[in-house]
Structure formats: C-alpha cells, structure tokens
Amino acid sequence: MDGADAAMSRLVRKHRVQRTLAWLMAPFWVPLAALVLRLGFGYRIAEHAAVRAEFRRIRSDSSAPLLICANHLTLIDSFVIAWALAPAWTYAIHFDSMPWNTPEETNFANTLRNRLLVYLAKCIPIKRGGTREDVAEVLARVGYLLGRGEIALLFPEGGRSRTGRISEEKLAWGVGRIVAALAGCRVLCVYMRGDQQATWSEYPARGDVMRVSLACIEPKSDARGVRRTRDLVEQIIGELGRMEVEHFSRHPGLPPRAAEPAAMVETGGGVHGGQ
C-alpha cells in the first residue's frame, strides 16, 4: 500500500468512526438543538414548509454529490441552516442528509469539551491559515463524504462577512477545489438572513425571523489547475451575490443596511478551506 492509499484508508476509517458515533448520539442532540433554536433563542424560519420541500426535491432530483454553500453572518449559521432545511426527525431517519460542517477550530474546538461536542455534531474542524497539508486533509475528507452521498455545508466567503454582505475578501478556494474534484457536483447555494441581521454578529438577534432561499447550480469551468478552482468558487459566490440582491429586492424594508452590496467576481479567491 503506498502513502496515498494509506492516507485514504486512514481517512475512511476516521470518517466511519466519527459518523457512527455522531449517528448514535443524534437522537439526543439533534432534537435538543432544534428546541434550543426555537424555544431558547426564539428563532423562526419564514415559510419553512416551502424551504424544506425545496430541499427534499433537490436531494431527490439526482444522486450526484451535493455540496451546500451558504452566506455567513453568525457563528451558528450552520445549525440554523440545518434546522431550516429539514425537521429533526428527518435527520434521525436520513442521517446522511444532515450536513457535515467545517467550523473554525479556534472558535469551536478550542477545549476538550468543545472538541468532543463538535465531533459528535458532524463537524470537521479546520484551522484558518493552517498548513497546506492540514487543509488538504479536510478537503479530501469533505470530497470523500460527498462522493458517498453525504452532504456538507461550507461557507465560500471563508468566514463571517465583515461587511454584512456577500464578501470576496477571504474567498475559500478550497470550495472550488472540492467541486472540481467531483464529477457532476451540484452546489446548493443557501442565502439566509434574519430580519434583524444588519451585519455580522456572533448570534442572530433573539426572536429573529430567518428568511432562507435556495438555488441549485452545477458550476463548470474549462480552465485548468488553480484557475479552474478559482473560476468555480467565483461562480458560487456570484450566485450567492445574485440571491442577496434578490433577497433585498423582495424585502426592501428589512433590516437597516450596513453596507452596499460588494462588487462581484472581480477579485481572486483564497487558498484556504477554513470558515
């Protein structure tokens, strides 16, 4: 067995163990997380039945890999998005439809307890600005799980947008790399914003109403190497930018605008895969 095979074999083993433990714990923490979001924070998903029906339709439309790419404004976006896309019982039955996340290690996996929690919550922590090898391992893991029909959620902005609008400042080109490596990979772009969410923050405001829109695209590029990767991630961020414009045109009274929309697809992407 050569080095690459051995590394892949390790990755598969690691994935199987984490997936099994997370699956065993899911009946406990998934409903609890949903309750905390609904009753603890008082969040609501606007038109949640339509959002969930659309997610079901997209999932059943094709067996091609499905990567979720979302805008990023708060620390708990990934939990809120998972809750918005399907009810807790769905994840108990169709565990692989619950997205894996790649939270930033220093925010979420900084203590032993937190590391354990994110491990059981289908998270693969990534260190922003970590070594190329570490980032490559996480990207390989995400590519592997997508290839076997599981779903992952990544934030192509590479972190919470400091402008409160879709930002290309820290673009995560690892997202493009994953898409490039998976034939026919579909990208479910999710634009989510609370009615009170003027800009980035740690948490959405208590009692906020989340508006969620979905658009499934299949990015393509004739370019090669890193240019292809950049091209793909720019298509994704471009779609999220379009969805943002649509969001504000549909809801012109919501929330106070912190900044004008960022110019799209003029700058390059980032090499990191972290969020």
Partner: peptide, 28 residues
C-alpha cells in the same frame, strides 16, 4: 493572507509560464 494564496499561485503561473495543480500547492 491564506485567502490570497491562489492569486499568488496564479501570478507564479503567469510569471514562469507554468501550470500548477491544486495538489501541488499542498506542499508549499
């Protein structure tokens, strides 16, 4: 900034007229 490395790599490609794959960058 790690997010800017892709621009650096593309600048390398242009300067030296070479093609660099994503995997190549992992060891840099």
């Amino acid at each position: 900034n790690s997010a800017r490395l892709v621009d650096v790599v593309i600048a390398f490609e242009d300067e030296f007229d070479i093609e660099i794959e994503d995997e190549d960058v992992d060891s840099v």
